[in-house]
Design a protein around this nucleic acid. Structure first.
Length: 1060
RNA sequence: GGGCUCGUAGCUCAGCUUGGUAUGAGCACUCGACUGAUAAUCGAGUGGUCGAGGGUUCGAAUCCCUCCGGGCCCA
């Protein structure tokens, strides 16, 4: 058998998706498809972090990926589709801590790092399983059996290799940095980790008096929101160009920016007097007595310190006093200025956010908890000018929500600033979609990039492969397990490359000493940033690397600009001096119905499982893929419903085709398209032309990563061109019984169009397309088992006929105009009309109607059609002439009404033409004889004859002749009866090819006569072997019903009889 | 505060690159038609100061400037 199969009538997404899942697993289709292909295409999956279950936004990401991967597979590429998972890092540590009920690093050390790491690992692996199930469930075909996992030893080795290279290139460095620090997690956080969690805090801010050396009662006035940084004060910054003032008040003199004076004194109730003003640069070098000198004796040892320094960058007049307290140990900006002036880094704060012994009186206390004590000390020393409550945004730990502090710590970092130029050059080689994501956004980010602090003082992560000699202090970066083994002081056999096991390995130093690993682990962003080569097991597997690298495409959300897109680039430029990807597609964020991001705490999260349950996977996919990829996707259930309705129409279209083709045992291989050429009607050629154009555009859109353009185009084609138009045009042809070449031509066309369309939607809706394919097409000889094994179609340019497409557009509008005209005349489409006239000045429209005359007559249900020029059309209208009585009166006096009456009797058109020709017209008026009429005596009105209705459209005006004729009314009645019988067939649940016998009882002899004449037509259409038409003597049998047709009663009975 | 981006019908969005009347699309709503795809389908109608204000131009949803509001990122 090589014919078209039959499919089920309704689109039941659940059973479709279930059966397709089991079809795939029974046939092994997925494996086969995934292993096919020739030319390499390296798709690199951005590894999701394995903590939370995925929501519809995460689903969008993977669905986009899946659609492109499927597209490239169908194009014949061998696609590398390994998914990845990001499995290290602080978030997992925090979750594990919570799970086992501990809170600090101390407790971790207490339970043993080994135990802790094991728990983290199994937690990560469990979550990987959950996420994998969710992704698979979306119909994403990736290599789920062997994803790359950042916790694998060989993955870690790849990262080590990169770090070794960084060290060789002198891009790896160690130094003091002012960093965001989480006192709870006791680790540095990268700037971006901090900015994720800026929260509004309302806190006390204070104005403090710094006594100027050598002057009685003269103070520099500073403002700070962080009193706890005062023990580390080293300098005061002022702006060299702003105007500063000495202000006298209550026997004291204060130095501050002139512009801030009003604000500073507001609320204090103090009077003040400006003594003098001067530029800030005059203040340079003035020394002062640190306010907490007595409490923090260490302050006395700081040198040089406690002077006014200048900064035109970091001093503003928006808040404070214009004199900025500077603690280089607690602020990046302070640190920069401090370096410039050679000031010491003083940071008397430890890892847990407590003051060290250096902080004297405050030693051992938590910094933020000390604010109050510091303030009261200042008060008792008379150094507090005033306090205020200020709202300000303060960074918090992205995972544990603890407020962060800034402190100086020694960290390892990659000197990104040294390779910035290379990063920018490499970025220029990358194709970004949309363009601005790379050119503007990513470019700006790189330009502003700072050195990347990669060390974290934690446990669950890639251990930094850096060993330091206890004797000579030199360091060694280890690039592989082999290298580690060969340099170890004792023999290493089995070794997992995690803490604490790696920590136990000591290395021999060339100086003879013993080297120990630094205890830090790597920032998790370094894990995922190494994915381009680590997933290929570089450098162990050179071949794989040579074959695949760099990635042809990566695709992630816009938040990855500073995340994965960036770290991927940096790691790759460090290691290979080259960009790791050729193209990047950036997608938007998903928000909930209310336009806000989906958050558990807001309760607006929608999970894909919910959508799948209610509307199915394909609906979710079609919807999400139709949204503009790089804009925000506002998820609404309403849109999901709309999409679902569309998919039903799509299904219905295929069902229609399958119904008739399978009934007729249509076998496409017997009728190749080329052999049917001469039987194709214009509408067939039209739809093929439209299809070829569609193939071209969809291919371009998919190739350009604009899947939403493809989806919208596909939807419009199915809705407008196929469902609403082509199917309508060919309906009648499908009803003929015999092997009519005209019918076959329609089938061949439909087959060509629907099969190719199915290929185009396969990457979008893999389940629905597979089900339709398997039911309809896979039984045809030479067809593969799965729609996903088909090749992507290429457009056949020679079948594109723009002129025909244009003509059809014209004709479609004209037909629609005729429907409007019918509607205003209240004439149903079923009633055939004698004639239709199209008045148009356009030759194109005229040619179109003439070329597609058959289509127009058929669809408009008219027997005759005529195209006219506007002049010809004008003549069709009656011209009514009205006497202009106001003018006639004064001229003809008492005879004027006679004249008026004579005018009214004239033929308007003839009169108008006479005026146009000669300017005058003579008329015989009773009692006056012949008189000459002049143009101004009358008014003309154009009026359509009563039997015409018209409707305008873009190409002209359409007129329908509504004159009823006996013949046409009869035909209409027959159609009415047919319709009723069809309705009954449907209700009796008969198959379309069942035969019946039927009887119709007409209300009058007249009606009976009309129906008798058309009995064979009726019988043919309703598949009645016997048809009895009678009056009253109704013979009821089988299913019998009374019907009202145009106010008269008909009784119809039908009954199924044995076929043939 | 800075960079990028979005703002068009009640809702979701096309159109903007390359200025030329928004026949804008789908949904919703109202009215009607169709009835061998039928819990489907089709037609018509209602509905826009194209976020606001300036500018350039004969002409601006489209180009330029300013502002307002949403998003991502950075401070």
């Amino acid at each position: 058998m090589s014919k078209i199969g039959k499919m089920s009538k309704e689109y039941e997404f659940k059973s479709v998706e279930e059966s397709v899942f089991s079809y795939w697993s029974e046939t092994g289709v997925e494996e086969k498809v995934r292993s096919n292909g020739k030319e390499k295409f390296y798709f690199l999956d951005g590894p999701p972090y394995v903590t939370n279950p995925i929501h519809v936004g995460t689903a969008w990401n993977k669905i986009l990926k899946d659609a492109f991967i499927r597209f490239y597979r169908m194009k014949g590429f061998k696609v590398r589709d390994q998914p990845g998972f990001d499995m290290h890092g602080l978030p997992i540590e925090v979750m594990v801590e919570r799970k086992i009920g501990i809170k600090s690093k101390k407790e971790i050390e207490l339970m043993g790092i080994e135990n802790f790491i094991r728990t983290c690992k199994s937690f990560a692996l469990e979550n990987l399983e959950i996420a994998t199930r969710q992704f698979k469930n979306l119909g994403v075909w990736m290599d789920w059996s062997s994803p790359y996992k950042t916790l694998d030893d060989h993955y870690i080795e790849s990262v080590w290799a990169m770090l070794k290279k960084a060290d060789e290139r002198r891009l790896l460095s160690r130094g003091k940095k002012v960093v965001h620090w989480c006192p709870r997690c006791e680790t540095v956080l990268a700037g971006y980790e901090a900015t994720d969690e800026y929260r509004e805090l309302e806190e006390e801010s204070i104005y403090v008096k710094f006594k100027v050396d050598g002057k009685e009662d003269e103070y520099i006035l500073i403002w700070t929101t962080t009193p706890w940084t005062l023990p580390a004060n080293v300098a005061v910054m002022v702006h060299p160009d702003y105007t500063y003032a000495r202000v006298r008040s209550g026997g004291e003199v204060y130095i501050m920016a002139e512009a801030r004076i009003g604000q500073v004194f507001s609320g204090t109730g103090k009077d003040y007097e400006v003594i003098e003003t001067f530029p800030g640069s005059y203040l340079r070098g003035i020394s002062y007595r640190p306010p907490l000198l007595e409490e923090v004796p260490e302050q006395a040892k700081l040198k040089p310190a406690h002077v006014v320094v200048l900064s035109d960058q970091f001093v503003t007049l928006e808040e404070g006093t214009g004199c900025v307290h500077s603690a280089p140990g607690h602020g990046e900006e302070d640190h920069a200025v401090g370096e410039q002036y050679g000031l010491p880094d003083f940071c008397p704060v430890d890892e847990r956010g407590r003051f060290t012994d250096e902080a004297g009186k405050y030693a051992g206390k938590g910094v933020r908890d000390s604010n109050e004590e510091i303030i009261s000390d200042l008060i008792s020393k008379g150094l507090l000018f005033k306090t205020e409550t200020t709202k300000h945004r303060y960074p918090h730990c992205w995972r544990c929500k603890t407020p962060l502090i800034l402190r100086t710590a020694t960290q390892w970092f990659i000197k990104v600033t040294d390779i910035k130029e290379r990063l920018l050059e490499e970025n220029d080689r990358v194709e970004w979609i949309p363009d601005w994501a790379g050119r503007a956004r990513f470019g700006n980010w790189i330009k502003n990039a700072k050195d990347w602090v990669i060390s974290r003082q934690r446990y669950w992560g890639i251990p930094l492969p850096i060993w330091i000699c206890r004797s000579c202090g030199s360091h060694k970066v280890v690039g592989s397990l082999e290298e580690l083994k060969s340099n170890a002081t004792t023999e290493v056999k089995e070794l997992e490359l995690h803490r604490p096991w790696v920590d136990r390995v000591k290395l021999r130093c060339p100086c003879g000493g013993e080297m120990e690993r630094v205890p830090d682990v790597a920032d998790v962003w370094m894990d995922s940033g190494s994915a381009s080569f680590a997933s290929l097991n570089y450098p162990r597997e050179r071949d794989a690397f040579e074959r695949w690298w760099p990635a042809d495409l990566i695709l992630e959300g816009q938040d990855q600009t500073r995340g994965w897109f960036y770290t991927l680039m940096v790691c790759s430029v460090v290691l290979f001096d080259s960009a790791p990807y050729k193209r990047v597609l950036m997608h938007g964020f998903t928000t909930a119905q209310d336009g806000r991001a989906m958050h558990k705490s807001l309760g607006n999260v929608v999970f894909p499982e919910e959508v799948i349950e209610k509307y199915g996977r394909d609906t979710l996919r079609w919807y999400e893929l139709s949204c503009t990829t790089w804009e925000d996707l506002k998820f609404t259930w309403k849109s999901i419903e709309e999409t679902s309705r569309f998919l039903k129409i799509l299904w219905s279209t295929y069902y229609f085709a399958s119904l008739y083709m399978s009934l007729d045992n249509f076998s496409p291989n017997d009728h190749p398209l080329d052999s049917m050429e001469r039987h194709l009607r214009l509408e067939d050629k039209w739809v093929i032309s439209k299809l070829e154009g569609l193939i071209k555009r969809v291919t371009e859109a998919m190739g350009g990563c604009r899947v939403f353009e493809a989806v919208r185009d596909l939807e419009e084609f199915m809705r407008e061109d196929i469902s609403r138009w082509y199917i309508k045009l060919i309906r009648r042809r499908t009803w003929t019984e015999e092997e009519d070449p005209d019918k076959i031509a329609a089938y061949v066309t439909l087959y060509h169009v629907l099969l190719n369309y199915l290929k185009l939607i396969a990457p979008i809706v893999p389940f629905l397309s597979e089900k339709i394919y398997v039911d309809l097409f896979s039984g045809i000889e030479g067809m593969p088992k799965s729609v996903h094994m088909l090749e992507w179609p290429s457009p056949c340019e020679s079948r594109v006929d723009p002129e025909l497409e244009e003509d059809m557009k014209v004709v479609k509008e004209i037909i629609e105009a005729s429907y409007s005209a019918r509607q205003s005349a209240r004439i149903k489409t079923r009633l055939p009309l004698m004639r239709m006239k199209v008045v148009t000045s356009s030759d194109n429209a005229k040619n179109a109607v003439e070329r597609l005359k058959v289509v127009v007559m058929d669809q408009a249900n008219v027997k005759e059609i005529e195209v006219m020029t506007p002049e010809e059309g004008g003549r069709m209208k009656d011209v009514v002439v009205l006497p202009n009585r106001a003018l006639l009166g004064p001229i003809f006096r008492d005879k004027s009404s006679m004249v008026a009456e004579a005018i009214s009797r004239l033929n308007g058109r003839e009169l108008m033409e006479a005026f146009n020709r000669e300017g005058t017209f003579s008329v015989e008026v009773h009692g006056l004889g012949k008189i000459e009429l002049r143009r101004e005596y009358v008014t003309f009105q154009e009026r359509l004859p009563d039997n015409y209705r018209s409707e305008k459209c873009r190409y002209g005006e359409v007129f329908i002749d509504t004159t009823p004729s006996e013949e046409l009314v009869a035909e209409g009645l027959a159609r009415d009866v047919i319709r009723r019988i069809q309705e009954m067939r449907k209700r009796a649940d008969l198959n379309v090819d069942d035969y019946i016998r039927a009887s119709v009882s007409a209300p009058s002899e007249e009606a009976k006569r009309v129906l008798d004449k058309r009995a064979s037509e009726i019988a043919g259409e309703v598949r009645a072997k016997e048809l009895e038409i009678s009056t009253f003597g109704c013979n009821r049998f089988g299913m019998s019903e009374d019907w009202d047709i145009d106010g008269e009663r008909y009784i119809i009975s039908i009954e199924k009889i044995a076929s043939k």
